[in-house]
Design a protein around this nucleic acid. Structure first.
Lengths: 344, 344
DNA sequence: GAATAAAATGCAATCGTTTGCAAATTTTTT
DNA sequence: AAAAAATTTGCAAACGATTGCATTTTATTC
């Protein structure tokens, strides 16, 4: 059976014609509007299916002024390639896709390199999307602030403790940093490196937790142990390599701001036959799927991303209805594995 | 300085009013149409910037019948969660985003679970997107075939050797499988497992390469060595574990259909203190960023995804202009690392 | 069976751009 | 300085769906 491609595009008007009703009736019938007699509704819906009819989204959006599209912006750091390589960000995108679809929205993917600088204009005023979800606060929140200032619906994944006029969803970074550090200290570590980029709000919070854990354990902190590097495994690998070359093994624990960073550090240590966790314990962040596949498996801090995604979507949709919104902290737990402790 | 949110939405008509010209002139001026006097053009463009004006995409799409949006569909395998976990797919999405943006298109992300079954209808006829890029042929190409049959612009990432009425971009899977196997054989392996799901076209090709390599090397093939598992690290981990438990170490090499699978296998072997590569050599596929971070670093087959993305976009845009299209094979190379050979 | 209430359908304006064609303006030519 | 040609601009009709309001049809009541 060959289905011929219909010569002329099928519009609602034509479908209505076929059904012998007006376009208004057809339109309502397709939306299951109870204003229309049940029998008519079913008849038209069946007809639509039969003729492979689809409402024209462009026309519908123009008329209703709603797109049912959400722009998700990966807010990347300018000079690093954190983006394409970090599984965590993309995992979050996957979860968002799911959460959005569940609410009848679609996901327009973008990143801070490509989208023009004026997000409110480009995405919302232009009616490309109804709202924006930004992943990551980046080093500066200028663009986010600007977008928010113009009053568009917006939600951010970042550090929820940051004071901002828009809701921020994120793990408890202070707690994450604290727990990771405390975990190492309780296993006897005395000189713990903090590996990450301290310009991020999220990372700063983690660093505060790192410091507090030291204070609570009465272990002195050496500023030499706070290491600012790009958030990539390569940077971590290089840093650890060079540090050991220069100073010898002058630390016995590492708190990393992401699993990717941890894996880079791990590789450098292994190549130099540093025992893990016997000589150095390592804690990562994010619990990417590879963390438990490493050898030794990687102790890390997991944030409930699925819950986060749902929360972000909820907070965004709330804004559509002018409901109040608020920043939300999602569950953050330490997953203890072999990179910090010997066989259980 | 407070920028007031303009009370009434700024439309092209209003902008034209402000400028003292007709909407037609304004429209053309914004597109830098040479029909309009240069001076007028600049004046209106400046005015648009000043007033934060953005063309309404919905209206524009309705009128021009073009969306400048491409739907990217992750064609996942129904019961596995390959999706959210496999860095390779998401890397490809990243590259596509880049390639699309370079051509002035946006990326609408979707996956085979969520999108309705009738892609042509849902995305194209509904004017949500101008074309479709499908990532992965899946176990059945039914949905893809159906979409293609209705004559919409479509491109697929998969096995380029598959005969299909749409262009397929992909690595040379036969060669990849052949090279990986040959590499292991040349390092002395005699019984090599093939770990993967043979229902995929891509995997089948790789398996053919695997077989041919054996024949060329005069090494017998045991069907017991072809192992059908889900394409996840977890499945690989379990499989290897159970196999060893049941049969002992009855193999000395593994060809995996993805790095994720390889990492799962690797973990299982390490836990049983199987020497790598001394007892068993392992080759992965995809060269995800973690491959070289593993210990030992993972020998794998790399496909040039950046080139692939650009090629896919090109082939898709060609269809818009009714230019001929053709399947394309992208560069596929073996990256030899420690998991198959001792220190160099 | 007429009057009233309730249910179902249709009319027509609107959303904001784009574009073929006509009209107005400017420049060039004779 | 008028005619012809070239350059700029504007008119008005699409694009296809949605929805408040009016109208028609059906069901209910007396």
């Amino acid at each position: 059976m060959v289905t011929l491609v219909s010569e002329t595009k099928l519009t609602l008007a034509k479908l209505a014609d076929i059904a012998g009703v007006s376009t208004s009736t057809a339109s309502r019938a397709l939306k299951d509007n109870p204003l229309i007699k049940q029998e008519t509704r079913s008849r038209i819906q069946a007809l639509a299916k039969e003729h492979n009819f689809s409402i024209n989204a462009a026309a519908s959006r123009l008329r209703t002024q709603k797109t049912h599209v959400i722009a998700v912006i990966l807010n990347l750091i300018d000079n690093t390639e954190q983006s394409t390589t970090d599984p965590f960000l993309l995992k979050l995108v996957g979860e968002l896709n799911q959460a959005l679809n569940a609410k009848g929205y679609e996901l327009l993917l973008s990143n801070s390199f490509m989208a023009s600088d004026d997000w409110a204009n480009y995405f919302i005023r232009s009616q490309r999307a109804d709202g924006i979800i930004v992943i990551g606060q980046g080093k500066s929140t200028a663009k986010i602030d600007r977008a928010a200032q113009s009053g568009i619906p917006i939600v951010v994944w970042g550090d929820a403790k940051t004071d901002a006029p828009y809701p921020i969803i994120g793990g408890d970074n202070y707690l994450g940093g604290y727990t990771a550090t405390q975990h190492l200290l309780s296993h006897g570590a005395k000189r713990i490196l903090f590996l990450g980029d301290s310009e991020h709000a999220e990372m700063q919070e983690r660093h505060k937790g790192y410091s507090q854990a030291h204070r609570d354990a009465n272990v002195p902190i050496d500023t030499q142990c706070t290491c600012a590097i790009d958030i990539t495994s390569k940077a971590a690998y290089q840093y650890i390599n060079e540090r050991i070359k220069a100073n010898g093994l002058d630390f016995d624990g590492i708190v990393c701001v992401s699993d990717m960073v941890a894996l880079g550090a791990l590789k450098a240590l292994k190549e130099r036959y540093v025992g893990i966790p016997s000589d150095v314990g390592i804690v990562g962040y994010d619990d990417i799927s590879l963390a438990e596949l490493m050898h030794p498996s990687l102790t890390t801090v997991r944030q409930n991303t699925q819950h986060a995604a749902i929360e972000m979507v909820t907070q965004l949709l709330n804004q559509f209805e002018n409901k109040p919104t608020e920043s939300q902290v999602v569950e953050t737990t330490l997953i203890a594995r072999r990179s910090t402790q010997h066989s259980d």
